[in-house]
Nucleic acid binder design. Sequence first.
DNA 1: GCATTGTGGAGCCATGAAGTCCATATTATA
DNA 2: TATAATATGGACTTCATGGCTCCACAATGC
Lengths: 142, 142
Amino acid sequence: MQVSKTLDYAVRSLTYMGNQPVGKHNMKEISQEQHIPLNYLAKIMRRLVKNGLVRSTLGPDGGYTLRKLPNEINLRDVYEAIEGEIRMVDCMDKDTLCVLYETCPQLPVWDRIQLSIIKILEDTTLEDMLKERKTVTLNRVN
Amino acid sequence: MQVSKTLDYAVRSLTYMGNQPVGKHNMKEISQEQHIPLNYLAKIMRRLVKNGLVRSTLGPDGGYTLRKLPNEINLRDVYEAIEGEIRMVDCMDKDTLCVLYETCPQLPVWDRIQLSIIKILEDTTLEDMLKERKTVTLNRVN
DNA sequence: GCATTGTGGAGCCATGAAGTCCATATTATA
DNA sequence: TATAATATGGACTTCATGGCTCCACAATGC
């Protein structure tokens, strides 16, 4: 029930890129600015590319660009690109459903939580995060 | 971001006991009824005892009893007894705060999700779960 | 052609979840 | 008082996975 570092790194990279949405950012830059191990970042970016969140270009002056505007990319997209489908519990174990499934008392609760998480993730875009951060920062400074 | 088997087992045991709140239930019984490995269950029950959710008695005819009524035990209690404090992200790494903490754009989102989870867990008692299960079951049958 | 970028995949390592086992303490009952 | 039945405490094992490294390769701009 915790956010993985991998997801953290992905969100960092994307919000970072969201600051200059049309700009191009290479791995070294992102890695240094966001304190993410370069080799690991490489792996993560591939998933973002594969899942259509980011476009990559090769060669010198290559790098990554957001495929959509920051207000068009929500956190659910990011989560699922990295972790796959959002699922609180796994009632299946190698083809067989949990023996208690039929009258499982806890399933509805995990479902409610899952829906709530999905809603929040869907409702939050990169732009939202960047705006909110600025607000928070200003509040702190003043 | 998934429910651990350990937590699942704990909830299973407690809801099971909630069916006869004043009754006494020994490990063998719970283990068999709820399909939980006996030795592992032993470990889990110790935590529930230690955290005051359950009372244990030794000797023949010993076993476990709920310390409160099913409508007085909520899922947050259970969660924290098993997993400790609920925390989505860990900004600390060995005494040092994440370098990006000050203006971290994602922290507010994980906070919102965390609060939402806590609320749902707090609002759900063992009794709620047992009642809801019956409703669900009835709906299915009819 | 060369340097610079990302790609793909194999592989490593530490950690923690899940589970086992056993020796011990407590207590009911015969 | 002996014995059997219960829980307790802790050491230990096993396995999967998150986090990370490395390297050979492909694309592309100069």
